[in-house]
Amino acid sequence: MSPESLPSPRPCSMSDALAVLGDSYSLPLLRELFYGFHRFSDLATLTGAPRTLLTGRLRKLEDAGVIVRRQYSEHPPRYEYHLTEAGADLIPVILTLKEWGERHTGDGVAKAVFRHSCGAELHPQATCSQCHREIRPGDFEVMGGTHPPVLHA
């Protein structure tokens, strides 16, 4: 195939999401916000992010509408960071990544356990909103938009 006949990359919402969340420290920041830590000093300590890098990540997440900055002290000016509605929508993503990491990585770190408000241990999974069965490879088809791609040999 000549370079002119190769398909161009198609738009992809997963790539768009990774452009916002894929930087180092972005997901650990969101994890700590989800756990209830909101102050810059706590976020720096808990993520291990250098302060200048942390500032940039927080600004990027704020610009993307994932978090909001709220002033809690005027003298000196100090801010807390909180999840927006868009940030709260990431909770299932963060929980699912945590669950995947615990199943498939061997980092030797003690695993956190989450309890749902019903009292059960929480193990997130993707399910169909209609039939409530777990979604597995081969259980769905992609239609519309730029999917599926049409590649010509």
Rank of each mutant, 00 (worst) to 15 (best):
G108H: 07
C128V: 06
K60A: 15
S26C: 15
L54M: 12
L29W: 00
E74M: 08
S117P: 04
G56V: 02
H116A: 15
D63P: 01
F34I: 02
S117G: 10
I135D: 06
L61I: 13
E74W: 06
T47G: 03
T127Q: 13
Y79P: 06
G138M: 10
A86Q: 13
P7I: 14
R39V: 11
Y72K: 09
L30S: 03
F37P: 00
G48A: 09
R133T: 09
C12E: 03
D107W: 03
S26E: 04
E134N: 09
H38Y: 05
P50K: 09
Y79G: 11
E85W: 08
R136C: 05
G119R: 12
I91C: 11
T52R: 14
D23W: 14
R133W: 04
R31I: 08
F114M: 03
I91Q: 08
I67R: 00
P9D: 12
G56P: 01
V68S: 12
P76E: 10
G119K: 10
K60G: 12
H132C: 14
L29G: 00
P76K: 03
A110Q: 13
S15Q: 11
G56F: 07
G87D: 00
G138C: 08
K98L: 07
D16K: 07
G65F: 09
R136G: 04
I67Y: 02
Q130W: 15
G138T: 07
S117F: 12
Y81C: 00
S41Y: 12
T47D: 06
P137E: 02
R133Y: 09
R10C: 05
S15G: 13
L46M: 06
R70C: 04
G87Y: 00
F34K: 04
Y81I: 02
T105F: 10
G108L: 06
S117D: 08
R133E: 13
L54D: 10
D89C: 04
Q130M: 09
E80I: 14
S13H: 12
C118R: 13
A88D: 07
Y35H: 08
R136H: 10
A112D: 11
P28V: 07
L122K: 03
F114Y: 13
Y81M: 00
S8G: 10
T47E: 02
L61E: 09
G87S: 01
L122P: 03
P28W: 02
A17M: 05
S8K: 15
K111F: 01
E74L: 13
P77I: 12
I67L: 09
L54C: 07
A126E: 09
T55C: 08
L90Y: 02
K111R: 14
T47L: 04
G106F: 14
P50I: 06
V66H: 00
H104I: 05
T127R: 15
G48I: 03
G119H: 14
E32V: 01
S13C: 05
G48L: 07
S26P: 09
Y79W: 13
D63A: 11
S129T: 12
R39C: 14
P76M: 07
F40W: 10
S117L: 14
V20M: 04
E80F: 09
L53N: 05
A49R: 05
A112Y: 04
A19H: 14
A126H: 08
R51Y: 10
S41N: 15
D23P: 07
E102W: 06
S8R: 10
V109Y: 05
L33P: 01
R57V: 01
